[in-house]
Nucleic acid binder design. Structure first.
Length: 881
RNA sequence: GGGAGCUUAGCUCAGCUGGUUCAGAGCAUCUGCCUUACAAGCAGAGGGUCACUGGUUCGAACCCAGUAGCUCCCA
């Protein structure tokens, strides 16, 4: 059968993926083997596959496939996250397109639509992962809002509440006016902004003017948010500020609404900033809130939940907050109350999901008491610092510690419908209990008020933060919270490796560690591999709006999954950002093609019995076999070292070079029979064996082509499919082969290139060496690779020749034609000059008493060797002249 | 404002506890080749004052200090 010149991935990929699936090779059940477990960072059901997923899941697949090949019981659990805010926004938008408003339908109706949406689109991303070759145990696919996982969430919430780790409280929280929900601090992204700083004057009241003996005047504050002045309750100055000391206790009027407010003093104030006067708006600023509490001031919330001016503001009612800012500035200007404006840079919080500008708002919400949590579970921090849980790269340990040490309470309630509803029930008086379900809640109420009936109770309307379910993921996917048989949980947990982006280190990684120690007393995983963020060539993040993100599925269609996997992995050491460039994926495709053609080559050879080939060929083939065996083991050791350090790109590069340089350019050329000649049976078998071994090394990285060719080598009947073959082991002994003689090949090629000679022109060579034997064994191979038609040793140097050094041995190539003697001489002279310079520095070192006295003996020995070698070389080069 | 990290070839990055036959890899570039496995290829070659300035040391890409630039995290 004729094989195509180019590797064609499409047919191959779907064929083998189906084969693996049909045979259940991805599936795992507990047995006596050592488990190796990864839980997928569950993608959002709203998500579609992007380059970040590609990187992330390729790495997981590499790890899981390698573990599987190493005989471990490999289990990669896939699944999806319900993504409360994102999904709710999607569904709201879809309903709006149909002319339905969320407020017009019931909660149950809305959830019906949401589930419908989830069932239709929620699994798309998992199907896309299959195209990549992800070897997840699809039988284990979980969803954060399915029944079992929801039960786990309730269970944990109730437990934490009863343990005093969750409380309901009224605090200042982050409000997303677009999503109309509160957010945790982690969901707020700070962005730098160019803002106007308005200097607004608050006129003194009559009373104050009288006391001061003035006819007019006021206090000027600097603010970027004039639209909140209707919520002002005081002006605050520093108690030591000489400019304002005398005004403390006096009153001023809030512009626009002319409400009277006091001037107070607090050392929180920064005298240098603005005018040194701060307008205190406790309802809309964290610091103002604190000042307000301290001075017992009222908090007037002047905004509605969607960011418009509330009735209680008394002016501009119904106007959007940003429109109001402009309007009020204009009006104040007209009234002469704006002294000046300045441009400043400040940072403004935005919603991670909706990108709306966050408002600070006082609200009654549910919180996790993090200080208490951390004091009860110190392992959460120490395990990472002590490397019981290893971060790769370790620089993220600092980031982790810093966050942990400054941790704030976690706001976990969201004013949404799509999510896990908070298991708290209220009676008509507003008392509440936390319970697993309504029946339990009713019982609890009845203990105090026996007459309570179910109709009196209503469940909290809010749902929990998405991450409140995600943090349980490594436990809950193995039903670790479920009563009864915990076979899976006991076997698979703790998991081995977690692969994720550093952007969710706090959202997810940290909280999984918390959940692990708090609910199971055990770490959730042993290693965390932080991938980089994928950027384009200009270092911009990939985003839909920039349009700089290629569609991964298009890439797979164009370059093949293996090619894409390789391209994306090659330049992605852990923690470094990946600058994506299509040329990398091309490189991946080209590599596939290279491997494919190596197979084509050997598939086309005619085979004969060993007796049919000459002894010379046999010996040459055997040497080549041993030589490649050495190269193979050396590379295998390096590849394992890369895995140990989680430097997957280095492992992959090691394989790349092993295959391309050592196997194809080296080994195959060595054993390749002359055109039209056959290959011996034993050599072909050795080649196939080596080929098969490199495919094994490659399989975790490029699963499809390695399976395809593995099957092809064994004519479709291998003992095992590649996916189950044993991964080559590190540290196996190998015979060291002295291949210094092979340098003759590159020297000759170089000479031909430099002289513009055809490779077809044969040369004879003369080597001056004390180790004749180490060259003799390679003669056949060298002759083949470099077109040499004669070898001689330690004879008279010919008159006309080209020369080179092989280590300290000399190589002469008789060359009858024109030689640019001057150029040759110059080349040698330059070499001598370099060596002399080198020798001088070595000599200087060796004659330095301090060096000899201080340096380690082996270093000195090395220097002496260098000196001897350099002297030897110089001697030879000089004598040649 | 606080913290962490980075700066090595045109690009992306390796360089472990300091020891110049280790300044390296891949890609890109250049030269010559359509040599019956592969032009998605083959054979070669040229690129670097290791950000800058000082210091420690017999010896610094590596350790220390300062300067400049960049990135990230947190407020």
């Amino acid at each position: 059968m004729e094989l195509d010149k180019h590797y064609n991935p499409q047919a191959v990929e779907s064929k083998w993926y189906k084969y693996w699936m049909d045979n259940g090779f991805f599936n795992s059940v507990p047995d006596e083997r050592e488990p190796y477990t990864i839980v997928i960072p569950p993608p959002n059901i709203t998500g579609i596959l992007h380059m970040g997923h590609m990187l992330n899941n390729t790495i997981q697949d590499v790890l899981i496939r390698k573990a599987r090949m190493e005989g471990k019981n490999a289990c990669w659990v896939p699944g999806t996250d319900h993504a409360s805010i994102a999904t709710e926004a999607k569904v709201v938008k879809k309903l709006a397109e149909q002319g339905v408003k969320k407020t017009d339908i019931t909660r149950d109706e809305f959830l019906g639509h949401a589930w419908e949406w989830k069932n239709k689109y929620g699994g798309i991303i998992l199907e896309q992962l299959q195209k990549l070759g992800a070897s997840c145990d699809w039988n284990r696919t979980r969803f954060t809002m399915e029944e079992e996982l929801s039960n786990a969430v309730t269970e944990v919430f109730v437990k934490m509440f009863r343990d005093g780790l969750i409380y309901r409280g009224t605090k200042m929280v982050n409000w997303d006016p677009a999503g109309k929900t509160t957010l945790s601090d982690e969901e707020v992204i700070f962005k730098e902004n160019n803002s106007q700083l308005y200097f607004v004057t608050y006129p003194f009241t009559e009373e104050t003017l009288k006391a001061l003996g003035l006819s007019e005047g006021g206090l000027t504050v600097a603010t970027t948010r004039p639209e909140t002045i209707m919520g002002d309750v005081a002006i605050c100055v520093h108690p030591e500020d000489e400019r304002y000391k005398h005004l403390v206790g006096k009153t001023v009027m809030v512009p626009v609404i002319n409400r009277v407010i006091p001037v107070i003093a607090d050392d929180y104030i920064d005298i240098e900033f603005g005018t040194g006067c701060l307008k205190v708006t406790p309802a809309h600023d964290e610091n103002d809130y604190r000042i307000g509490e301290k001075h017992q001031l009222e908090a007037i919330d002047v905004l509605t939940e969607d960011g418009k001016i509330h009735e209680r503001a008394g002016a501009y009612v119904g106007l959007d907050r940003f429109a109001c800012r402009k309007q009020i500035a204009k009006d104040l200007e007209e009234q002469g109350l704006i002294l000046k404006t300045e441009q400043i840079k400040n940072t403004v919080g935005h919603s991670e999901r909706t990108d709306a500008v966050i408002e600070k708002r006082i609200s009654t919400q549910w919180f996790v008491d993090m200080k208490e949590f951390m004091s009860r579970y110190p392992k959460v921090l120490s395990s990472v610092m002590d490397d019981e849980i290893k971060f790769h790269p370790p620089k993220f340990k600092n980031v982790y510690r810093h966050w942990m040490e400054n941790i704030k309470d976690w706001n976990i309630s969201r004013q949404l419908w799509w999510g896990h509803r908070i298991p708290a029930w209220y009676n008509k008086e507003g008392d509440f209990v936390v319970a697993k379900n309504q029946d339990e809640a009713l019982e609890m109420f009845r203990l105090k008020q026996p007459n309570t009936v179910a109709e009196d109770l209503h469940q909290d309307e809010d749902v929990l933060d998405t991450w409140y379910s995600s943090w349980l993921w490594p436990i809950s996917v193995f039903d670790g919270f479920k009563e009864g048989d915990k076979k899976d949980y006991n076997y698979y947990y703790p998991t081995n490796d977690l692969v994720t982006g550093p952007d969710i280190i706090f959202f997810w990684v940290a909280r999984m560690i918390m959940a692990g120690y708090a609910f199971n007393g055990e770490k959730p995983f042993s290693n965390v591999y932080f991938t980089g963020i994928i950027r384009d060539k200009q270092r911009r993040k990939m985003s839909k709006s920039l349009g700089n993100s290629p569609d991964p599925l298009d890439l797979i269609a164009q370059y093949g999954a293996d090619g894409v996997r390789m391209g994306i992995l090659l330049s992605s050491p852990a923690g470094n950002d990946i600058l994506y460039d299509e040329s990398q994926v091309e490189q991946g495709r080209n590599f596939c093609n290279k491997i494919w053609n190596a197979y084509r080559l050997l598939a086309g050879w005619q085979v004969v019995a060993d007796q049919e080939v000459s002894e010379e060929i046999k010996a040459g083939d055997q040497l080549a076999n041993q030589w490649f065996a050495m190269k193979f083991q050396m590379a295998t050791d390096e590849i394992h070292a890369g895995f140990t350090e989680y430097k997957l790109s280095e492992s992959l590069m090691g394989i790349y070079k092993l295959i391309w340089d050592d196997f194809c350019s080296g080994y195959l050329e060595m054993v390749k029979p002359a055109f039209g000649s056959p290959i011996s049976e034993s050599t072909l078998s050795a080649v196939k064996n080596h080929f098969e071994n490199i495919l094994r090394l490659l399989h975790p990285f490029m699963p499809f082509i390695s399976e395809e060719l593995h099957q092809a080598i064994f004519e479709g009947k291998p003992e095992k499919p590649m996916i189950l073959c044993e991964y080559p082991k590190a540290g196996l002994p190998y015979t060291v082969i002295n291949d210094q003689a092979l340098q003759i090949v590159s020297e000759l090629r170089n000479m031909r290139n430099a002289k513009g000679l055809s490779p077809k022109q044969a040369f004879s060579v003369l080597v001056q060496t004390p180790n004749e034997a180490s060259y003799k064994v390679w003669e056949y191979t060298i002759a083949k690779l470099a077109n040499v038609d004669g070898f001689s040793y330690n004879t008279q140097k010919p008159e006309k020749c080209l020369s080179a050094l092989i280590g300290t041995d000399e190589l002469f190539v008789p060359f009858a034609e024109e030689i640019d003697e001057a150029a040759e001489k110059k080349k040698i002279e330059e070499e001598i000059i370099y060596l002399q310079g080198f020798l001088k520095s070595v000599d200087a070192k060796l004659s330095n008493e301090k060096f000899v006295a201080n340096a380690k003996p082996e270093v000195i020995e090395k220097e002496r060797q260098k000196k001897a070698d350099a002297e030897e070389k110089i001697k030879k080069l000089m004598s040649g002249n």
